[in-house]
């Protein structure tokens, strides 16, 4: 995300707001964050996103979201926040030893 750590300086009022851009490519994968840009409104953000991030057919669908509307997890709780998944190795298929004779699974 590009807005992180930004305080709202005097410039913010005059400056076109920042938008985060998400693009889905041709092959059906999820929309992916590709970067950000400034635009006065959503319509302009969309057009600018097309010009800045899809100059080489990178996408068939664009989402634009004002950066300040994004809530992000904080790096300081990196450890504890993800702890529930760290202690559950059995969620991974490699946790189980299945004999080769049993075939593919």
């Amino acid at each position: 995300m590009s807005d992180n750590g930004r305080d709202s300086s005097v410039h913010e009022r005059r400056e076109w707001p920042l938008w985060e851009i998400f693009i889905r490519g041709m092959h059906g994968l999820n929309h992916r964050h590709v970067g950000s840009l400034h635009a006065a409104d959503a319509e302009m953000a969309m057009k600018n996103a097309r010009d800045v991030y899809t100059r080489r057919n990178e996408g068939v669908s664009i989402w634009v979201v004002k950066s300040r509307h994004i809530a992000a997890s904080s790096p300081s709780d990196k450890g504890p926040f993800y702890e529930p998944s760290r202690s559950k190795a059995y969620r991974h298929p490699t946790f189980f030893d299945i004999p080769e004779e049993a075939g593919a699974m």
């Binding site: 590009s2 750590g5 920042l18 950000s36």
Partner: peptide, 27 residues
């Protein structure tokens, strides 16, 4: 024209990267 347009894009990618450090584009 396409080449020069790319350079504008490069400028934008980089300004956005710098902005994450707490400086505004206008500044």
């Amino acid at each position: 024209l396409a080449k020069v347009q790319d350079e504008a894009g490069h400028g934008l990618y980089l300004y956005c990267a710098a902005e994450t450090l707490g400086v505004s584009r206008d500044e």
